[in-house]
């Protein structure tokens, strides 16, 4: 039973990312979208938390939201996979339920 967790909040404004990381289990998938994509960038003070999570969880970020915000996919934490909406749909299908950390 695997969950796709979605995080749509900036980690600098809300605790959604932290709540997600502490309530997700090994082998799950985490998709960063909307303002959640800020957590995917290198050099932030949540980078180490995200990297720690990536040891046991797969992290994705939504490409259109990265581009919209003027962020560069070159500056994304290594190992985070950028997906488009079709990829988002695929993740929702391949995991058996979705938890939205609103």
């Amino acid at each position: 039973m695997s969950i796709l967790h979605t995080v749509n909040k900036s980690p600098f404004e809300k605790n959604s990312l932290d709540e997600c990381l502490t309530h997700s289990t090994d082998g799950c998938a985490i998709l960063l979208l909307e303002d959640g994509v800020y957590a995917a960038m290198q050099g932030t003070n949540v980078e180490s938390a995200v990297k720690d999570a990536m040891a046991s969880k797969k992290v994705y970020a939504l490409g259109p939201d990265i581009k919209l915000r003027g962020l560069s996919t070159d500056r994304i934490i290594d190992g985070i996979e950028v997906v488009d909406f079709a990829g988002f749909v695929d993740l929702s299908e391949s995991n058996d339920k979705v938890q939205a950390w609103l």
């Binding site: 039973m1 695997s2 339920k97 609103l102």
Partner: peptide, 8 residues
Amino acid sequence: DQQDVLFN
């Protein structure tokens, strides 16, 4: 993890 549907 054990749920079928999560409402938020």
